[in-house]
Design a protein around this nucleic acid. Structure first.
Lengths: 336, 336
DNA sequence: CTGAAAGCGCTTACAG
DNA sequence: CTGAAAGCGCTTACAG
């Protein structure tokens, strides 16, 4: 059962492939093709179940109508939501999305980027890892449509969209200070990525301005640590430093942190207040509910797509800047 | 900055495109091409940053090395994990995966399936929705490589991989009965999909065999209901029927159910035992931990890919059956 | 050992 | 109003 091609249809109706192509692409009237022929072609195409070969179209037109999306980890809630909204938005513009996870592994990231190039994607949406600088810079130099998300490289003039990390952490810290906490700890992962640095620096800034707390209590866990190792590290840190509040820098850390807090038997917020970057079903459902700085995921995705579409010459949307920071939503629950 | 093509390289080294193609595809020795020429071509290709145009390769070879994956909802934990493992496994065999969410909308599902066909994917991995029967059957008839996951259509001879729903629910029910619960309710979504029917029938079977409980207490919520509506429905159901245990048929329902139980102020498991199909971080972290029937997600993904690879003529793996059911893992926590 | 040629399935200037 | 022809960037029988 061979697939029918445009040529097959042309042969069946006794017209040339070019004429059939025009009709199938809705250019019949523009090319002043008779209604009779047009209807005949349309009917035959339908009857034969004709489906254009997109690969051939892409090769000919130079457009694949595919966007490449590289996230850190698709099984992580934040990135999954991001991917979903991006897919929906892209569809509005007639683009499909192929996605892959870098696992924050620069080698894998670079390979995926090359793969996307070989696949001739029309545009790139990337949450880059450290080590991808060169390849990203190359894309920028070649004027490829590209938008970074969640993080970016300070030296590289690429478009990006991220949450306002600094503002978010400052807001959370302010809240804790107002509530009277005097020994606020900060738990993050070891990472040179800009968004983690921004958050950490905001914590440091907040502490330096605090009237009551002079000293930072920070823990950095290894990125590649197993669940168990990280939980142990957090447990030990909390036992040793006995903070009265703790700020988790990510979703993932927050979840592990809760396990750790539970294992010590601390009561939230009486013994220890908890606040976390990124929301999660777990934090909403937890008893007590965990206060969070929620990233505006949909807005990040939408803005990224709009900037990318602008680069692709799709002017349905007008955007001014191509480097955007969006405010986080502060959701106060019972943990602070 | 135009991309360099194979022809460009041929021109630069003064050889024919065919020779360059052979060299670049590692067939130099097979074609008895001189080492000198070979090295020259390789060096030039590298220097010029040559990247083969996969679109052209696909058109010519008829293989895209792309697999199409259709899941119900990529932002749902179960499907995200499934997608991730599939992607990893596919990579082992040199395939990329493009995925999309059907949202259990048959119109969208059918459109996506056609899109995948137009994009010339080499194989299909699908969690089908009701209403996709015809299109799926067409793929089977055309002998397209295809594996269904999570659910299937009884009348259609397609390969599939799913968890043993019947066995899983029976095991859970048995546990509840043994623990002495006598009024076990079952909460599911309205759906004609096979996996939901299998679970429901297993519940009915368990009740019919139970020495103590003669009557079923089942609630079916609408698939499209909003969070709030579903929570209200569950709340009302629990208040009215006062079961001593409740079995949630999915992940998503379980989470909403916990919110509902909390709003009523019932204590788990004293007032109400809880068990759920599908695991989730939330259930592990919840106080008390929720007992679950965990799907073997990785195994499902791996099996599906292996069957698909077999269909694609990739004989690295030997599999006997092409319709597979895998046992669930029963994880007992404190909620039962 | 290497090159010229055909062809994958389309689209689109160019002719008539 | 419609057709013949070129070409997108590759691969692969076919010649020599």
């Amino acid at each position: 059962m061979k697939r029918v091609s445009l040529k097959d249809i042309a042969k069946m109706v006794g017209a040339s492939p070019s004429t059939v192509s025009f009709i199938l692409n809705g250019k019949a009237s523009q090319m002043r093709i008779s209604d009779e022929l047009k209807n005949k072609v349309l009917a035959t195409a339908k009857k034969m179940g004709y489906q254009p070969n997109q690969v051939a179209v892409s090769l000919r037109t130079g457009q694949t109508k595919i966007l490449g999306l590289l996230v850190e980890d698709i099984s992580n809630n934040f990135f999954a939501s991001l991917a979903k909204t991006i897919e929906e938005e892209a569809e509005e513009f007639g683009y499909k999305v192929v996605y892959s996870s870098t696992e924050n592994n620069s080698k894998k990231g670079v390979e995926l980027l090359r793969m996307l190039t070989q696949r001739q994607v029309d545009g790139y949406l990337v949450t880059p890892t450290l080590g991808m600088e060169e390849d990203i810079e190359m894309l920028v130099k070649h004027k490829k449509p590209l938008v970074l998300m969640d993080r970016y490289f300070p030296g590289i003039e690429a478009a990006y969209v991220q949450v306002d990390n600094t503002g978010a952490v400052l807001k959370g810290m302010e809240h804790l200070v107002e509530k009277g906490y005097k020994k606020i700890a900060y738990i993050t992962i070891e990472s040179g990525l800009i968004q983690m640095r921004q958050r950490e620096e905001a914590y440091a800034e907040a502490i330096s301005k605090s009237p009551e707390q002079k000293k930072k209590y920070a823990l950095k866990v290894a990125y590649n640590g197993s669940r168990e190792v990280i939980i142990d590290q957090i447990t030990e840190f909390l036992k040793k430093n006995k903070p009265d509040a703790v700020f988790f820098a990510t979703n993932y850390l927050g979840i592990l942190g809760l396990e750790s807090i539970r294992s010590i038997g601390l009561s939230i917020p009486k013994d220890l207040a908890v606040i976390c970057f990124d929301d999660n079903d777990i934090f909403r459902l937890h008893l007590p509910g965990i206060s969070v700085l929620q990233q505006p995921v949909e807005a990040i995705a939408r803005t990224a797509i709009h900037i990318l579409m602008q680069q692709l010459g799709n002017n349905k949307v007008a955007i001014k800047k191509n480097q955007v920071q969006l405010a986080a939503n502060f959701i106060v629950r019972e943990s602070t």
